[in-house]
Amino acid sequence: MKMTKIYEGSHQWIMFGRDEGKPANIIDTNQYVVRTPNRCLLLDPGGAELFAPMMAAVLHHAPVDQITDLFASHQDPDVISSLGLWDQALTNAKLHAPAIWEGFLRHYSCESIEYVPISDNGGTIKLESVELQIIPAHYLHSPGNFHVYDPQAKILMTGDVGAAFEAPDAPVFVDNFAAHVEKMRHWHQRMMPSNQAKRVWIERVRNLDIDILAPQHGRMFKGDDVKRFLDWFDALQVGIAV
């Protein structure tokens, strides 16, 4: 599992992905960790298949008892089907996840972890002195969907928005936006169902000061590529399968 520190300040952001040991027939995912002095938040911790390499990778940054928070942007298995395993490994943790998916996500088993439901209008996650904003991103692509914004690190974790599928050895940041577009086009047209939801989300995130846009699949966007992505997405017609 490749680990890349993408922010270092009063706290850290670490991106995990490009797992070489993962079975070839499952989708590659990026996991993000926000590390404060005594706590650790896993954003979209991944599928059950990924649990062992992900846990092993996190242990380079935090002990098990400091993994106190999990966040699931939505209910998909590549996002959170590892929940039942985290549930048995962690003794004092919370799962921040969309309220509408609570009954569904509990199918993965969530007995010792406390489910903290996120209402439709979002909220915050407080991690010691760090306050992360939970940004609504409904219908992008899931009907109950959230992104996480860190105003201090200026990172927006965007789940499936900005996703692309890459070779295992691909760089973690977009280095040629024009070339990258074709890796994203069909995914966004097919997986994102609503042009209206997309416009509302773009208006919302254009107001945020973003250095890094961090999707759950493929490369991250930084600097000017963040605006390029938003402009490109704004112009894209989505929901093409109907």
Partner: peptide
């Protein structure tokens, strides 16, 4: 089984 695998994979990690 997964925990054992994670422990094995984490050998050498700061918090293994």
């Amino acid at each position: 089984n997964k925990f054992e695998l994670a422990a094995k994979m984490a050998e050498g990690a700061a918090y293994a």
